[in-house]
Simulated scan of single mutants.
Amino acid sequence: MPHLPGAPAYDAPGYYGDQYDDGGPAVAPAPVGDDAVAYCLQTYGSYDPQSGTYVGDDGYRHPCP
């Protein structure tokens, strides 16, 4: 569909307004100690407490937390 003269482009700054810009995704700090193991067990089905790692979507092991 052609761009209408005088209409803002969909990707123009401010098109959707600043009220939707919350500064990015919210990230909680990783828990420590026994809470960290419980967190990893609940979050990652492939978590291995012995190694402290899980298998990511990329097929590689990653540390948690």
Rank of each mutant, 00 (worst) to 15 (best):
Y39C: 06
P13D: 07
G17C: 10
P5N: 13
G59T: 02
G56A: 04
A28D: 10
G17V: 06
Y60T: 15
P2Q: 15
R61N: 06
L41C: 04
Y39R: 11
P25E: 13
D34W: 05
V32F: 07
R61Q: 07
Y44N: 10
G56F: 00
Y20V: 12
Y44R: 02
V37P: 02
D21F: 06
A12P: 08
A7N: 09
A30S: 13
C64L: 04
P49I: 00
P13S: 07
P29Y: 05
G52F: 03
G6Q: 08
Y60Q: 15
S46C: 01
A36W: 00
Q50W: 07
Y16P: 13
V37F: 01
P31D: 09
P5D: 14
A12T: 13
A9C: 12
A28T: 09
Y47E: 00
D34I: 07
A9D: 14
Y10V: 15
A9K: 15
H3L: 08
A26T: 13
Y60I: 12
C40M: 03
Y44L: 01
Y20E: 04
H3G: 13
Q42Y: 13
Q42E: 15
S51M: 07
G6D: 10
T53R: 02
G6T: 04
R61C: 00
C40A: 06
G24W: 04
M1W: 15
L41I: 02
A12R: 08
A9F: 14
T53E: 04
Y10F: 11
A12W: 10
Q42I: 10
D21R: 08
A7P: 07
P65H: 03
D34L: 11
Y54S: 00
Y60V: 14
